[in-house]
């Protein structure tokens, strides 16, 4: 059984902020509701539903966010998004015929790199997933994975040789996830790559990738192209996972130690009662 209430009170991306110019109007679907997203001459974004009722709206992390419910909290913060010297890159939405939760879980997974992103994010025989730490941070109610490392032949557009890349993963909301990774030109900093997902329904979504990088050299189209290549490889997996929804019953699929982040994510969803896009049979 799905309980839409909890899910509908979250914030979801409805537009790329920079693409919503003054006077523009975009129509998007969020959880089977049609929303109209506009920006007035003064620069203020407005979202209305199909009854003409104003919906909550905020602008953050390069996107316009809205909700078909009543979000009890402001949107999660992402301080790196406003840090000096970072280049902010919108990669645009990609439609995926899969549950938004499967899309987020795939983003948290490193064991697939050698097989799905062959010779880019991973390559055989470097398939071992070293132990890493995962926790549900109760103070912020977020899932975090830290001390994640993986050998990558070409970790980013700015990397040319293979390196062991270090990662941290953060899930601040069920349909939003952020990755911090070794930044080849600035060893002291971490590049930020985020994925914000808008469910059109429980088995269909638009995924917006957004990056905050220390990379002033790579051409914008190359950065976007790199991210698109990676994501289209992921999509070919996501659209062929059975069932389409994310199973929350641990007996339905067989994780191993490498899947600690996914195990924590599923447990966290279950604990929150977030069932939109989840397969809850057996739970």
């Amino acid at each position: 059984m799905t309980s839409p209430d909890i899910a509908q009170d979250d914030w979801y991306p409805v537009a790329i902020a920079a693409m919503l110019t003054a006077g523009a109007e975009q129509r998007v679907t969020l959880m089977s509701h049609t929303l109209r997203v506009t920006r007035d001459a003064a620069g203020k974004a407005t979202v209305t539903d199909d009854h003409g009722t104003a919906r909550p709206v905020c602008e953050a992390h390069g996107h316009v966010w809205s909700s078909i419910g009543t979000p009890p909290h402001p949107i999660f913060s992402l301080p790196e998004g406003v840090q000096d010297g970072r280049r902010l890159v919108d990669c645009g939405p990609v439609r995926v015929k899969a549950s938004p939760l499967r899309v987020v879980e795939n983003f948290l997974d490193i064991a697939h790199f050698p097989f799905v992103h062959t010779d880019i994010l991973g390559a055989e025989p470097h398939t071992v997933v070293a132990p890493y730490d995962v926790e549900i941070r109760d103070t912020v109610d977020e899932v975090w994975a830290t001390k994640v490392s993986f050998y990558q032949p070409q970790a980013a557009k700015s990397a040319s040789d293979g390196i062991v890349t270090e990662y941290e993963y953060r899930v601040p909301a069920p349909c939003a996830t952020i990755l911090y990774k070794t930044c080849p030109p600035r060893p002291a900093e971490m590049d930020v790559i985020a994925l914000f997902v808008r469910p059109l329904n429980e088995e269909l979504c638009d995924a917006y990738a957004w990056m905050a990088l220390f990379d002033d050299d790579t051409a914008l189209e190359d950065l976007i192209q790199f991210q698109q290549t990676i994501f289209l490889q992921d999509r070919s997996i996501l659209e062929n996972q059975v069932p389409r929804k994310l199973p929350l019953d641990p007996r339905m699929e067989s994780p191993t130690r490498a899947d600690k982040t996914s195990i924590a994510y599923r447990r966290w969803l279950k604990r929150r009662g977030y069932h939109y896009g989840a397969e809850t049979r057996g739970v």
Partner: peptide, 21 residues
Amino acid sequence: CIYHGWQYGETGACAYIPAHP
């Protein structure tokens, strides 16, 4: 399997998990 490379033998038993050789 194309996703994480788990290997299944002729009996269907999983024989190898690349993340944990």
